[in-house]
Structure formats: C-alpha cells, structure tokens
Computed example of a mutant assay.
Amino acid sequence: MVRRKTLFVYEGLGGEELCVQRLCSCLGEWAEGTSFKVEKIHPEDILKGGWQERSALMAFPGGYDSGFLQTLGQEGQHMIREYVASGGSYLGICAGGYFGSANIEFDKGGPLEVCGARKLKFFPGHCIGPVFPGFQYGSTLGAHAAIVDIGSSEETKTFSAYFNGGGKFVLLEPSPDVQVVGSYAEVGDKPAAIVLCEVGEGRAVLSGVHWEFRGADLDAEDPNLEKIIPLLEESEKKRRSFVSVVMKMLQL
C-alpha cells in the first residue's frame, strides 16, 4: 500500500503560471475519488526537505528550466534525484522534461539558445528543441497541435496534444532504462516525444508535449490557437485516457 499520498507540483521561478495551474488541475482531476492530493511546492520548501516522506510524485511544469536551476542549485537537484532513485516518481512536462534530461539543446544557434548539462539525468541523453518552429517566451506564436503516436491500441494510437516549445528525447546509445512512450508522428524520423525512465527504484516520465492541457484551457480569442483548439477537443477522450496511463507508469 502506498503511504506517500501527495502529488507535488513545483511553483516558483521557471514555472509558467498557466502551466502550473493546468498541471495541478490535471493531476487533481485524475486524483478525484482517490486518497491522493495535489499540493504546490516552492523551491525553498524543496531545499528545506521533509517533503520526501509525503511525496508520491514530484512534478515540474512548463516554463524555462534555467529558472529551476537558479532556485534549486545543485543541492535541490541532488535531493530530487535521490528521492526518485530511492523509489519516488518524477513528472516533467516541457521545461520539466528538459530539466530531467542529461543534456539540453534549446534553440541551438538561435537567439534563445540554452545548452548544457543537467544534474537530474533521469533521461541519459539529449532533449533537443523546440521541435516545431516559432517559439517565443510569453507567446503562442509557436503553438501547435502535435500528433503523438503512443501505439498502445487502435483506439488510442494517436492523439493531438498542445505543444509550445517542447523538445524531443534523443539517446546517443541505447539504454535499457528508457522506454519511448510517445513519438512525434509528423516529424520525419518520429523522434521520442514522451519517455519513461527507470531511475534506481523509482521512475520518471518526461514529455515534450503538454498533454495536461485541454482545448478548453486555451484562449479561444487568440488567433494563434483558433485552429489548434478544435483538434485538441477532438482528442479529449484519448487525452484523459493517456493521463491514466502515465499515472500507472509512475506507479500511482
């Protein structure tokens, strides 16, 4: 029986407000009727410690991962790494996915370039993005309804997920600890969009797409989103099923 019942969502520098809200709502919807509960956790509380005994999940939202690095430093990252390796679970979406990879290449050679090694290393390869062009911080110019191939059954083989700046997960050599959960169906070599990583006794799911978002969560008055929202709404049933799949992967 699981004793840890709190699903923690990082809130602080680097976490985009809407992404934090939507991740909390998504996890809360899944947890309805269970004994799990969702709580936001600030970087100073992570560094203080004590959360590990209550945590069933540590989730990092979209935003920018350099903010996570700034607030948590090596100590905070080490605490999270140790928590997962000792049997905990980590969920990283978009920026949280970059953060959980060994190396990131974001807009390499471009004006928004952020490249370098990361300490968590749940995914022992590179997270490279944005996969689709046009991304700008604080904007929906690069937003896209990404078709994700999860190949689990004919009914849920593909679904459309909100995308805005996320990466693809690339291994330089095969790893027995990594399972590709979903791929970018529209991109030439169909790179990994979502991965499940075995980390010691724990698990991490990293995602380049925002499957925590419903079409209804986006601004219908935004011209950049008017063609995206209907595609997401068509996939809503599949999206909700996929949330449950991810929670099972995270041993929840």
Rank of each mutant, 00 (worst) to 15 (best):
R3P: 09
F8L: 10
E11G: 10
L13A: 10
G15D: 09
G15T: 06
G15K: 00
R22P: 01
R22E: 15
C24V: 14
C24H: 10
S25L: 12
L27W: 10
W30R: 00
W30T: 00
G33L: 06
S35E: 15
V38T: 06
K40L: 12
K40D: 06
H42G: 00
H42N: 02
L47W: 12
K48V: 06
G49V: 03
E53G: 05
R54A: 13
S55L: 06
G63M: 02
S66Q: 10
F68D: 02
F68S: 00
L72T: 02
G73N: 08
G73H: 08
Q74E: 15
I80N: 07
R81N: 09
R81W: 14
E82A: 12
S86P: 09
S86D: 15
S89A: 15
S89Y: 09
Y90E: 03
G92S: 03
I93E: 02
G97A: 08
G97I: 00
F99M: 00
F99E: 00
E105S: 13
E105A: 12
E105I: 03
F106C: 01
D107R: 01
E113D: 12
V114M: 11
L120P: 13
L120G: 07
K121T: 13
K121M: 13
P130E: 03
V131H: 01
F132M: 01
G134H: 06
Y137H: 11
G142M: 04
A143Q: 01
I147M: 12
T156L: 14
K157H: 15
N164K: 02
G166T: 01
G166I: 01
G166H: 02
G166E: 06
L172I: 07
L172S: 15
L172E: 15
E173W: 13
S175H: 09
V178N: 02
V180N: 04
G182H: 02
S183D: 08
Y184D: 02
V187H: 05
G188S: 15
D189W: 15
D189I: 10
D189N: 15
I194D: 02
V195H: 03
E198Q: 12
G200S: 03
S207T: 02
S207L: 03
V209N: 04
W211D: 02
F213C: 10
D217N: 11
N224M: 12
P230V: 04
E236M: 12
K238H: 13
R239D: 09
R239I: 14
V246H: 04
K248W: 14
M249N: 09
M249F: 14
L250I: 04
Q251L: 11
